[in-house]
């Protein structure tokens, strides 16, 4: 589904990604872990097309298409979804309006029919259960005045409605209490299907108790320094990141 080859990127003058290669197949969950500044959030944002980063080398193919050549909205329309670490507040625009606009833009891009507000609310009603919310959240402005936990739940709600092929969760666990973490993780698990894939970017092993990955990759200095199965996350929890980052330096 996703094939990253030797990806390099910088923000301003600062080189952050130094050659990342990674293959994600349908049905898989990959965890990207690493210390602060290792480039894991940058990788997530580069895949979604964040304008703050400039790709300086390598290539990314998503279902055979050149992902890096696509506008961010085209990537979303093709089925890439980024759950933001810091979801943006949009005053005055209701969740209902925003989500339906997003849903319809994606439908339109795929040559499918747009949905009217009534039918759309029916669709959303089902999805709301996934994040244990009532319909009143739909009339609130997008993330405006939401708590940290509510913002993350809203990201998962959007993901549930838009049904991406590839979901990238960027530190979705940061700042969540245990209840919110459970709700968010539960939502993600229920959305798992054999034909979609998930990349979970996280600093802590905690989230991976709930969302169990097939593969774990450790980033340091903008490179993948170690890959393994889910047991690698537990090893990191016990030993920290230092033994790997030192290995990376001496290697």
């Amino acid at each position: 589904m996703l094939e990253i080859k030797n990806l390099q990127a910088k923000a301003g003058e600062k080189q952050i990604l130094n050659g990342i290669s990674l293959t994600v197949n349908a049905g898989e969950v990959h965890a990207i872990m690493g210390p602060n500044g290792s480039g894991k959030s940058t990788l997530a944002q580069v895949l979604a097309g964040h304008p703050a980063y400039e790709v300086t080398g390598g290539e990314v193919r998503f279902e055979g298409q050149d992902l890096l050549d696509m506008e961010p909205e085209e990537r979303a329309q093709a089925g890439v979804f980024l759950a933001f670490q810091y979801p943006v507040e949009i005053a005055g625009v209701s969740n209902a309006y925003f989500l339906r606009a997003a849903y319809n833009e994606i439908q339109k891009a795929r040559g499918k029919e747009e949905m009217d507000p009534i039918d759309f609310l029916d669709l959303v009603e089902e999805k709301l259960k996934l994040v244990e919310w009532g319909p009143e959240i739909m009339s609130r402005a997008v993330n405006h005045g939401f708590s940290g936990g509510e913002k993350k739940r809203n990201e998962i709600l959007q993901m549930a409605v838009l049904e991406p092929k590839l979901a990238i969760l960027d530190e979705t666990d940061s700042g969540l209490d245990i209840d919110a973490l459970r709700i968010v993780a539960n939502g993600v698990n229920k959305l798992r299907r054999p034909d979609n894939a998930t990349i979970v970017v996280t600093h802590y092993q905690r989230l991976l108790n709930y969302i169990v990955p097939d593969h774990v990759h450790v980033l340091a200095g903008g490179r993948i320094v170690k890959s393994g199965g889910k047991e690698l996350a537990l090893e990191l929890e016990a030993k920290g990141y230092e033994w790997l980052t030192e290995e990376a330096v001496t290697a």
């Binding site: 961010p72 909205e73 085209e74 979303a76 933001f84 949009i90 997003a102 833009e105 838009l162």
Partner: peptide, 11 residues
């Protein structure tokens, strides 16, 4: 905010 909208397919 523009990028946020784009990332949801709204450009």
């Amino acid at each position: 905010a523009g990028f946020y909208l784009q990332s949801r397919g709204i450009g």
